[in-house]
Design a protein around this nucleic acid. Sequence first.
DNA 1: CTTCTTTCTTAATCTAGATTAATGCGCAAG
DNA 2: CTTGCGCATTAATCTAGATTAAGAAAGAAG
Lengths: 157, 157
Amino acid sequence: MKQIIVKKGHILQRKGDLSSKVYHVRRGLLRSYQIDEKGKEHIFMFGPEGWIVADSNSGDEPCELYIDALEDTTLIVTDKNITTEVVDPSPLIKRMGVLQKRILMLMSASAYHRYEHFIHTYPDILQRVPQKMIASYLGITPEALSKVKGEHARDRS
Amino acid sequence: MKQIIVKKGHILQRKGDLSSKVYHVRRGLLRSYQIDEKGKEHIFMFGPEGWIVADSNSGDEPCELYIDALEDTTLIVTDKNITTEVVDPSPLIKRMGVLQKRILMLMSASAYHRYEHFIHTYPDILQRVPQKMIASYLGITPEALSKVKGEHARDRS
DNA sequence: CTTCTTTCTTAATCTAGATTAATGCGCAAG
DNA sequence: CTTGCGCATTAATCTAGATTAAGAAAGAAG
């Protein structure tokens, strides 16, 4: 368990790496993402203060996700394999709740509703990252997000 | 920790319930699903032998998901709050890996590719549930799945 | 301040998948 | 056997969001 500081833009993990690291964010902002066959980025998760960021690959398989820093970030690095420490299940439960909600949103909600849910759930992140990353997280294009934002602003007035 | 048997069609949990039960499937098949505002079902997860099915709501909040039995099912019921037993984190890690994959598929893959991934990953479930449930799991309509199946069969010949 | 690069917006077109509707097929119940 | 209902298929339309393209705005770099 060591604490490190990474600069904005630093890549902590790439697809294919054999890392089994878990990153606990103390200050700053990480993101984990995939790059598909067409070279398009899809953000899996933002990791602001207090969050845990990791690839859920089982043990010794290569990573699926890239992880990098969107801001200068202070974090604690641990390893999944080292289970000497007692694992507190509550952050895992919370994380699963977030993933469950995300899946249900992707399956049943429109871009408009996903955006609305996002700004209510993560109002701070909205201010800290470019629109195109919000779009990537929501599973839509930046162009579509731009349109949705317009509709949303109109509805609020 | 008690073992129970439920008949096909039995509903174990409804949205809004204050249950914090965890179902470990020994034999049979469960599913968890959501019903959206328009009354449409969206299957969150199938739970065949060896799987754990539960709503990832944190502690005392009401459930989001319905859970029912698609076959006569034998299962072990435990409670999330009772942490007297030591929790084995490995099923949780595996579960998170599945959820991660699911999110990335929903964000980046076409109906065709999601179907292909499904039949390779869960070939047995394909035989055990009606097409409309596969469609619901994939996040498409039964009509769209019918078309995709046709294309897939054509490609294989 | 000026230039370069990245981000955001707007608009025109295109397409995967939704919706609607009609038909046929099991299969369980009487 | 036959009636009825849930399921699957096919086809015609429709639409949310993708793609493409082109400018405007806003940072970063010198």
